[in-house]
């Protein structure tokens, strides 16, 4: 039987890859893609702890995963709408060039 550690390690690896993507990518859409990886890692943890937990008949972690997937879908819809909006305004969706506020202050 697979020990719980394997799933947790899987989720930790996915989460770290997503975190690296969020930190190093310049494109807003690529950052959103990496965010989705981190969401998935959290969902794996929820499902794994539900399955290996003390009360699997209560479906707490399972239902949390379903809610989290739906909220991620809403987040992606809004995030991509904002990306398109920013692209229309600045002709550019690279995260480190969107510093209009900063330049206005200086």
């Amino acid at each position: 039987m697979i020990p719980l550690n394997f799933y947790l390690f899987f989720a930790a690896a996915l989460f770290s890859i997503g975190l690296a993507g969020v930190l190093i990518r310049r494109n807003t859409i690529a950052v959103l893609i990496s965010l989705e990886l981190m969401f998935n890692a959290a969902n794996i943890n929820f499902i794994a702890f539900w399955r290996y937990g003390l009360m699997p008949e209560q479906f707490g972690g399972y239902l949390f995963t379903l809610f989290s997937i739906a909220i991620a879908a809403a987040e992606v819809a809004i995030g991509l709408a904002l990306a398109i909006l920013i692209y229309r305004k600045f002709r550019n969706i690279e995260v480190d060039r969107l510093n209009d506020l900063k330049e206005d202050i200086e």
Partner: peptide
């Protein structure tokens, strides 16, 4: 992990909807 319904939802929403949405956003920018 015997969470078949979560797997189905994952494929329906992420593979079916989110990836298509991201592809459209890429094509629009």
């Amino acid at each position: 992990l015997q969470a078949e319904f979560a797997a189905t939802v994952q494929i329906l929403i992420y593979v079916g909807a989110v990836s298509v949405l991201v592809l459209f956003a890429i094509m629009l920018t």
